[in-house]
Amino acid sequence: MLQIQSLTRRFGERTAVNEVSLSIPAGQMVGVIGRSGAGKSTLLRMLNRLTEPSSGRILHDGMDVTALKGQALRDWRTRCAMIFQQFNLVQRLDVLTNVLVGRLNHRPLISSLLGRFTAAERAMALEALDRFDLADQALQRADTLSGGQQQRVAIARALMQQPRVILADEPIASLDPRNAKVVMDALRDVNKRDGLTVLVNLHHLDTAREYCDRIVAMQAGRVMFDGTPAELTAEKVREIYGVDEAEFHEQAEEAVRPKHTVAA
């Protein structure tokens, strides 16, 4: 059970996330939707503690995540794996090492610094890659892979962490529709087969409706809607965002597009 209690983050004058409270049972697949700048990204980054909350609390199975420091914080990060819009792989390293990065926190520092991974860890990484049909690319450099492949490598890395929660920040915004489907299917697969809690930021309502058990809609840092996909009707969308669904998509697409260029 992941509990978020009046979580707030301010950047100077601007409040990116404003008093967000959510309670997510284990094994749920939650889609967070909203325009760019609605605070979805900041919310997810706070859960992983890549961004520090200004106030509020995060509890995971009763443990206060917001108070963690040092090794305990790194252990928490291992348990809630993160997936990014730009994949955030180490482009110059091979795919296998990128996946093994997911094991770094599980092993002694010196052998990690030297890059000495055990045979068992390598086999485990290959298995994770194989699950997404990427075992044959294991020894290629990450930057030789397509965007869709890179995102699947990122999911394999996340699985290596043996996490309880997966946070996916706009995982398909930089991908074409075909690759987007493959990646979303992969996320659904880890949710259903491994029983992991998945929180995924999306700007596309249809994708959210198709894949998620529950949808949280954000606007200007606040949660405006929290319910099942069936409850998020066209009228509801108009009520929250003041535009109809087609216009909403157009604006959202526009907002994520400039970031595409970085992927190259």
Partner: peptide, 9 residues
């Protein structure tokens, strides 16, 4: 895996 991808080990 060692048999399939020896270079990875």
């Amino acid at each position: 895996w060692r048999a399939r991808l020896p270079a990875a080990f």
